[in-house]
Each structure stands twice: as structure tokens, then as C-alpha cells.
Write a protein that binds this DNA or RNA. Structure first.
Length: 563
RNA sequence: UGGGUAGUCGCCAAGUGGUAAGGCAACGGGUUUUGGUUCCGUCAUCCGUAGGUUCGAAUCCUGCCUACCCAGCCA
């Protein structure tokens, strides 16, 4: 399904990071490019991570280098095996493979510890007894320098002894920390003697209870990159401030490789939120039904919704990579799925909101099987046969008693084509006592079988339909944006991001589908003719398939009708 | 207010001194048994702003404005 659309597309991928890599290759600084995707296993991956994954693995692929998957697991209090499994699944699903290069920062705990002792021996790190609050208080502010810790000038021997006893579990959490000795007056606040190690009596998902001291991100990340010989360490903009510290550790230690950190802007998508904290909150507060709720911007959610890996990769290519903060239109993502699915999803007829039609001049017990192409964009998709008889359903919104200007669907005495079937003309409108339309009486033209007429008369409107006696019942889940505004983070004073939650982000309806959909399997994707693209949800049961709407078709009539 | 970044079409984004790519969206039109697809066309005399250098600047220099990030023993 994917290969076909992949080859007729050639997005020229050029960005400032690739330019740097090109220069490094040309100058001979590097001969092989190694990148890495370094998630912390404390939550599910989202579309923002997909951007990073496509960037890192994409570069490795294009430069014939390699991209490592490395779990940044230095804070056991937040990390779980469940997350590492979901992350691996999502990266694979997106179409990338790290091969042998699966790593964990925790693999380097011993090496990192040895490096720390070396820093102590070189007089570049010390054991501090200040409490967390005291450290904060002596750090200074954005405009004022901090003050030196009273423990800053301990002897190397004492520092070493204390550090070893920290590791041995002799002290309580928070009683001691290992700090780099840099500069309490640095305008880079992260350089004001940052904490390198803290004591935590917490079980680690991989190292168990082997360690009770854990290294901090700034200390761990640069050295992990170095150990793996990463050439270009790509991260998001908020780490720009940390780069001096990244370089400091690399330069103070006798490392073989000195990776270069390069920062790019993280992805923001309109009508959704992207922070792990907020996504976790949506899950915990049951606003959505779990991490893979189809409204979530998580990879798992998008997969369940029906987005294809190809469409997400294409999206990542199209949004580009730069240093300016930005918010991408959700429209672009929708364009990418439609483009993929238009080529690859078979067409099928489903009447979302059924209105019964009785064809008065059609024989009572006759059933015909009409041939229908599965995908006009792909002749290889073949044909199928759809039953047709006297009673059928059409879409309720395809009929209007008082037709507006430019309306070319059904209305009293007008003629339309039933896709793949016949021309019908509306003769009578049946209503209940409240005036609601309950049924339409129509006639059909037996000469128009297949949807053509010999006299070549123009029938502008074409409706989809299903045969009443053969239709199957299906549940349809119509999804819309989780939020009603492009930027949910802009809220009135005193409100939080939930202020803009869309109360109509999910609508479940019962519909009638053509019988072929009985065979649909979980994850199958279809275009419901004239409606949109839908994917079979895993909540389906044999008696009742459940479809998620991935995205609607472009609807220029809806636009016209608004005028 | 210290430091770090960024400001090119409604939204992304190329461009790196030689006179504004491309995509999405939008708009107009042709084709069409999906008001889908597809096709054709329109869409920045102008690059946050004010000066300066230059034959020539979005690209170099200076000032100013705006936005984002940094004061976790989170990442």
C-alpha cells in the first residue's frame, strides 16, 4: 500500500542541518554521519517526536550513516518499561529501524560514574551539602550572579570519599549532590555549578537497585552522544542555553568523540497541544480514552485514527526544519493523508445518515448485482459487485425539498444518478405527522443501468447509496479537533488549556454500509464515497464493524453553500 | 532589566551581495458516474523597523522593535 505513493514523490529535503552536515563531509571533519533519537521513556510519542524521528533517521538514511535509538533513562522516578515498548513500536511503525543500535543511557552508568570521579580528581567537581532550596537560593537570578557554595573548595580526597559513599548508599536523598565546578557568575545559568548526580533510592526499570545515585540530563546526554560517536546531536531549541554545558563536559573529559549539538524548532500543530504533560493530563482526567484515543496527536492515536506512516513521513518532509518557532496548519497534515489515501484506499459506499427510497417502477423481488470499480485512481484495485433492489438508502443531506441555487442533488422531480446504478427521479415525498421526511418515492430509468443513458442527457448529480435489504449496520466515529481554536494555549485570565476543549470532538452514529464491508479487517482503510477516509477500529466485532473517520473529503459544495 | 535565539505571502519554508523557490490554504476556470481526484491560472516591486556601506543588499554594518527560551537534585 505504501510503496506506490512513495515513489511518485520527491520532496527536496534541504535545511540548515543538512547544510552543516554537507560542510562537515566536504571539509573532511566527518566521513560517516551518526545521529540518534533519544526519547525519555516517560510517555508516549507524539507527532512532534515524529518530526525528530524523521529528521534523525532520514539523515542517517540519506547520508548512508546510522541513527541510534537511545532511551534517556536517567530519572527512574518517571520512567517505565511500558513506555520503552510503545516507543519502539511507534518508531518501527513509522518505518524506521535502528538495527543493532539500541541503547540506553543507563548502559553507561558505570562509565559516567568513572568520568565523574575523574572530574573530581581534576578538581572540576565537588560534593555539595546544600539542600535543594539552598542551591536555588544561591544560584542568583537572571540578572544577578550566584554565590559559591561553602562546600566548593573541599579537598579532592574528601570529595572522592563522599562521592563513593553517596554511591554506597550511606546518605539520605537530598543530603548530598555532586556539582560541576564551573562559574557561579556565568550568564548561562546552567553553568552555575550544575548538579551532576543526585541520590535517589528508586528502582530503575533496567538497572534495578544497583544504583542509588543517578546522573542528570546535561551530564549524561553529551557523554552518551560521545560514547556512541554521534556526529550531530539534534535537539530542540530550549536546549540552546545548555550547549555551553554540553561542550564543557565534552572538553573537560578525555573523550574520543566530540559531537556537535544543533538545535531546531519543535513542532507545534494548530488545534492541538503537544506537551507530554498536557497529553498525560488529558489521559488521566479522562477527557480522552487513553493514549491511543484517535483524537490524540500521539503516534498511537494517529495510528488508531487511521493515519498512514507514509502520510506522517510526508508531513515531516513538508514542514521543513528551521530555528524559528512556528505553528503548522493542521490542514497540511490532512492534505498529506488525503494524498496518500486517495491513491491507496478502496472506494466503498456507506450511507451515514440514511433516508429510504422506494423505486416504484422497480420489480418487488428483483435483486441485481452491479459492477463497481474499487479505485478509479488504481485500475489494479479491481472491481466488485453491489446488490441493488427496490428499496435503497441515500444520504439524507442529498435530498432537499426546496433546492437552493447550484444544487444538483435530489429534489422533487429532479433526476440524479445513483453511482454505478441507475438514474432516478423523485416523484413524491412522504412525511410523518411532524413533517419529517421519512421516505422518498422515486422512479428509475431501466435504460440507465450502470449510470449511463443512450440519449446522453446530462445528469449532474451523483449520489452514493446502499441497498436496504443487504446493508449492514456499522458504527461510525466522527472525529473533530480536540480544541476549538488554533492555539489552545491562549486562554482568558484564570483559565487553563481545557477552556477551549471541543465538546463535539467525537460523534458516534449508526450507519448503513454496503455488504462488502463485512470482510473489513482492523486497520483497513477505505474511502467512503463522497464522505471521507475511514479506518476500521479495533473495537469492531464481527456483527458490528466500527469505523473511525480519519479525515473528510475536500468539500467545495459545503463552501459554496455557506455563501 | 543578564544571557541565548529568532523575525521572508494567511500557515510552513528556500535564499548565504546580483536583483524574492516550493508546499499548504485561498481565489478563478477546464475535465469528471465521487461538488473527490486531476489540469490550467492568480496569489510578496518586497524580506520586523530606521539608517548606513555598495554600481547593486532579504543577504554586510549600526540602532531600535517584537516573540521565544534559561533561575528542577526534570528532560
Amino acid at each position: 500500500m505504501e510503496e506506490k505513493s512513495e515513489k511518485n514523490k520527491e520532496i527536496e529535503t534541504s535545511n540548515f542541518i543538512r547544510n552543516i552536515i554537507d560542510d562537515d563531509l566536504e571539509s573532511g571533519k566527518h566521513t560517516k554521519i551518526i545521529t540518534r533519537f533519544p526519547p525519555e521513556p516517560n510517555g508516549y510519542l507524539h507527532i512532534g517526536h515524529a518530526k525528530s524521528i524523521c529528521l534523525n533517521f532520514g539523515i542517517a538514511r540519506d547520508y548512508k550513516g546510522q541513527c541510534h535509538l537511545r532511551f534517556d533513562d536517567t530519572n527512574p522516578a518517571k520512567e517505565e518499561t511500558e513506555y520503552v515498548e510503545s516507543i519502539m513500536e511507534d518508531v518501527h511503525w513509522l518505518g524506521f529501524d535502528w538495527g543493532e543500535n539500541l541503547f540506553y543511557a543507563s548502559d553507561y552508568f558505570q562509565q559516567l560514574y568513572d568520568y565523574a570521579e575523574l572530574l573530581i580528581k581534576n578538581g572540576k567537581a565537588y560534593i555539595c551539602e546544600l539542600s535543594q532550596e539552598e542551591i536555588r537560593a544561591t544560584r542568583g537570578t537572571l540578572t544577578e550572579p550566584g554565590t559559591n557554595s561553602p562546600y566548593r573548595d573541599r579537598s579532592i580526597e574528601e570529595n572522592l570519599d563522599l562521592f563513593r559513599r553517596m554511591k554506597a548508599g550511606e546518605f539520605e536523598e537530598g543530603a548530598y549532590s555532586l556539582r560541576a565546578k564551573i562559574d557561579m557568575a556565568s550568564p548561562f545559568i546552567c553553568m552555575r555549578d550544575p548538579v551532576m548526580y543526585r541520590i535517589k533510592y528508586v528502582h530503575h526499570h533496567r538497572t534495578g537497585d544497583e544504583w542509588c545515585i543517578y546522573p542528570m540530563y546535561d551530564y549524561t546526554h553529551c557523554l552518551s552522544d560521545s560514547i556512541e560517536a554521534i556526529t550531530h546531536s539534534l535537539c530542540t531549541l530550549e536546549f540552546e542555553n545548555n550547549r555551553p554545558l554540553y561542550d564543557w563536559f565534552i572538553n573537560e573529559l578525555p573523550v574520543k568523540h566530540k559531537p556537535r549539538q544543533i538545535e531546531f524548532a519543535r513542532l507545534n500543530l494548530s488545534y492541538t497541544v503537544m506537551s507530554k504533560r498536557l497529553l498525560l493530563d488529558l489521559v488521566k482526567s479522562n477527557v480522552v480514552n487513553g493514549w491511543d484515543d484517535p483524537r490524540m496527536p500521539t503516534i498511537a492515536g494517529m495510528r488508531r485514527r487511521g493515519y498512514t506512516p507514509q502520510s506522517i513521513r510526508d508531513f515531516a518532509d513538508r514542514i521543513g526544519v528551521a530555528k524559528a518557532n512556528s505553528m503548522v496548519d493542521f490542514d497540511l497534515l490532512q492534505f498529506c493523508v488525503r494524498e496518500d489515501l486517495n491513491l491507496n484506499a478502496n472506494r466503498v459506499m456507506v450511507v451515514l445518515d440514511p433516508l429510504e427510497i422506494v423505486i416504484e417502477n422497480y420489480p418487488e423481488d428483483k435483486v441485481e448485482y452491479l459492477e463497481a470499480e474499487n479505485n478509479p485512481e488504481n485500475p489494479n484495485a479491481g472491481n466488485r459487485y453491489i446488490p441493488f433492489s427496490k428499496r435503497i438508502y441515500i444520504e439524507r443531506e442529498d435530498f432537499m425539498e426546496q433546492a437552493p441555487r447550484k444544487w444538483f442533488r435530489l429534489s422533487p422531480n429532479s433526476e440524479i444518478r445513483l453511482k454505478h446504478a441507475y438514474y432516478i427521479t423523485c416523484k413524491e415525498v412522504i412525511k410523518d405527522k411532524d413533517g419529517n421526511i421519512t421516505q422518498l418515492i422515486c422512479t428509475y430509468d431501466p435504460e440507465s443501468r450502470g449510470g449511463w443513458s443512450k440519449d446522453g442527457r446530462k445528469v449532474k448529480g451523483t449520489s452514493h447509496w446502499v441497498c436496504k435489504d443487504h446493508a449492514i449496520d456499522v458504527d461510525i466515529r466522527l472525529y473533530d479537533h480536540l480544541f476549538t481554536v488554533p492555539d489552545p494555549m491562549i486562554v482568558p485570565e484564570g483559565k487553563d488549556y481545557k477552556y477551549h476543549l471541543n465538546p463535539d470532538s467525537l460523534n458516534i452514529i449508526q450507519s448503513k454500509a454496503e455488504p462488502s464491508l463485512k470482510e473489513a479487517k482492523i486497520g483497513d482503510k477505505f474511502q467512503f464515497l463522497r464522505q471521507g477516509y475511514f479506518s476500521v477500529d479495533y473495537d469492531s466485532i464481527p456483527e458490528k464493524p466500527v469505523f473511525n473517520r480519519i479525515v473528510g473529503l475536500k468539500d467545495t459544495w459545503a463552501k459554496e453553500a455557506k455563501k
